[in-house]
Amino acid sequence: MAQPTWRGLLFWGTVTFLWGMLPAYAVLPTEGGIRLNQTRVIFSASDKAQTVTITNSDNRTYLVQSRVQFDTNNPAPAPFFITPPMFLLKPDSRQLLRIVHQGGALPTDRESVFYLSVLAIPSRATKDDAPVQISAGLQFLIKLFYRPPALSAASQTTLCPLHFSRQGLTVRVQNPTPYHQTLGRLAFDQAEVNLQTQPSMLAPMSALTFAVSGAPLHAEWQTISDYGGLSAPCKQQIATTQEVP
């Protein structure tokens, strides 16, 4: 059986180009047999490193390139480096990615968020030594939260910290905490909000606004925990604010 070929590192220029060309981001997909073992990374200032495992249960070899970047649409490297940054992941194998903070000035009173981006491109077995043709690649994009020394998981004592207020046909959701709060579920008077079509993460000391019909009285929600699961359900009466003329 013919072996996968990569044309050496001449492939590198094409891989770099594909970072900005993939139309979608995948988190823990099953297609292709490539998956990550978690949906987010929590990096405390006291951590020397954090690790993420990438597993290949496919029968193909993948070329994997990883890095931490500032935003989903900003591929500029963030102040973290990953080892190994580029490698071949063979069939039925796994690789540990080690993430290390490089230092640099970051906010000391709140979390910062970055994105771990992992690109996996499959090889193609050929009957001759013809160059490999790339058909598609998978890009994984998961959040990396950096917590400065003043913050820790133990200091998140308020289980339901969000504040809800209504003004006209909108509900404002305020996050008064120094932590990012990602909504995993939201409902107004038991009417579910589709969080797939609008922003769901509240940055520290920020707010989001949701359009509503009628005048909902109660909000129910759950946030995403450090481990990728849902928090305990929260419920709050929605305050009413007067419009300023």
Rank of each mutant, 00 (worst) to 15 (best):
A2M: 09
Q3K: 14
P4D: 12
T5Y: 06
T14S: 15
G20F: 03
P23Y: 01
A26N: 12
V27W: 03
V27Q: 04
V27D: 05
T30P: 08
E31I: 08
E31M: 13
R35I: 07
R40T: 00
V41F: 07
V41N: 03
I42D: 07
F43W: 04
F43N: 01
F43G: 05
D47H: 06
T51H: 12
I54T: 03
N56E: 04
S57P: 00
T61F: 02
Y62S: 03
L63A: 08
L63C: 10
V64A: 02
Q65P: 04
S66Y: 10
R67V: 08
V68C: 07
T72E: 15
N73W: 07
N73D: 11
A78F: 11
F81S: 09
P85H: 11
P91N: 03
R94S: 07
R94F: 06
Q95P: 04
Q95M: 04
L96C: 09
L96Q: 12
L97C: 03
G103A: 13
G103S: 06
G104C: 10
D109H: 00
S112R: 00
Y115G: 07
L116W: 14
P122C: 08
P122A: 11
R124G: 12
A125L: 12
D128K: 11
A130C: 04
V132L: 15
V132T: 06
A136M: 14
L141M: 15
L144D: 02
F145T: 09
P148E: 01
P149E: 11
A154I: 06
A154E: 08
S155Q: 13
C160A: 05
F164I: 06
Q167Y: 03
V171T: 01
V171S: 04
V171E: 03
Q174E: 13
Q174W: 14
H180T: 01
Q181A: 00
T182R: 01
L183F: 01
L186T: 06
Q196E: 13
Q196I: 12
T197S: 11
P199A: 06
M201L: 09
M201D: 08
L202D: 00
F210W: 03
F210Y: 08
A219Q: 05
Q222V: 10
T223Y: 05
G229A: 05
G229L: 06
L230S: 06
P233R: 02
P233S: 02
C234S: 05
C234A: 06
C234V: 05
Q236N: 10
Q237N: 09
I238N: 02
I238T: 01
T241E: 14
P245F: 12
